[in-house]
Design a protein around this nucleic acid. Structure first.
Length: 260
DNA sequence: ATGGTCGCGTAGCGA
């Protein structure tokens, strides 16, 4: 089964692009980020018509995450645990009845954090610490767990076209990469790295300054896996072709294929 | 070249 992460940058502005991609690739599970709308305005019918169950955790104008699944969704939680005062819609998690048993899937929109340093960067690092704590709890279940999302983290210099341009950015600062390593060191496997991702492969190209035609991208969309999920990973791919379609998102889908 | 481009919502912020 294929599990994808795709930051759509507004589900309403991207509905045509998303449904065309669903029709092309038929991912079994798709984790979406940056819906930029409330639950009541999510275009459910157009996506349900493609055979998907849907859960959303939306927010007016900003953020918002969803999980689309061709298999039944048994239970879910909205919002990252650990701070009841956090009103930003950046996390949704579900238990899905896959053909060979339950799979837990999360759709994650990690804070951007710019400008750094500053309060937005502090929020990013605090959010990453909360995510790490929650993952440590989830790993105790010893089940297939797939944490899919826009992490707003460039893990390595070779994951950006021009590392010097990102050196002080919240996506690439040493504290950001250290926090990302801490998350992985709880016991997760990055799907891209597991399949020998070499560098020079990107999932985001800025709308500005001709970043896409120049190949000036970064790799910030990731699938992080529990051991039980990593053992079943078969391959990964980046659906770059969608960036050439009309009115594309600035991100493209990243997809893992699993024997699950 | 201190810009450039999107989306939301209709000014200016977030990315």
């Amino acid at each position: 089964m294929d599990i994808a992460t795709f930051n759509v940058n507004s589900i309403k502005a991207r509905l045509h692009a998303v449904t065309q991609w669903l029709d092309d690739k038929s991912p079994d599970i798709a984790c979406l980020q940056e819906l930029k709308t409330v639950d009541g305005s999510f275009p459910r019918e157009e996506i349900e018509a493609r055979g998907y169950n849907i859960i959303t955790h939306g927010q007016k104008s900003y953020n918002g995450v969803a999980i689309l699944s061709k298999f039944p969704i048994e239970e879910h939680i909205s919002g990252l645990p650990g701070d009841e005062s956090d009103e930003q819609a950046r996390y949704i998690e579900a238990v899905i009845s896959a053909p060979q048993g339950a799979v837990r899937v999360a759709s994650i929109y990690l804070p951007n954090g710019n400008p750094a340093p500053g309060p937005k960067y502090d929020y990013k690092l605090a959010w990453m610490a909360r995510l790490k704590s929650h993952i440590q709890r989830l790993l105790g279940y010893e089940e297939p767990l797939i944490l899919a999302g826009d992490y707003n983290v460039i893990p390595r210099p070779e994951d950006c076209f021009d590392p010097a341009a990102w050196i002080d950015d919240a996506l690439f600062r040493p504290d950001t990469r250290a926090a990302f390593r801490e998350i992985i060191f709880t016991g997760l496997t990055s799907a891209f790295m597991q399949k020998d991702g070499r560098g020079g492969e990107y999932t985001f190209w800025d709308y500005q300054a001709g970043a896409w035609p120049r190949g000036n991208g970064i790799r910030i969309d990731h699938l992080l896996l529990s051991p039980q999920a990593a053992d079943k990973l078969q391959s990964v791919r980046i659906d770059k072709y969608v960036r050439d379609k009309d009115r594309p998102s600035d991100h493209v889908p990243f997809v893992g294929s699993f024997d699950l």
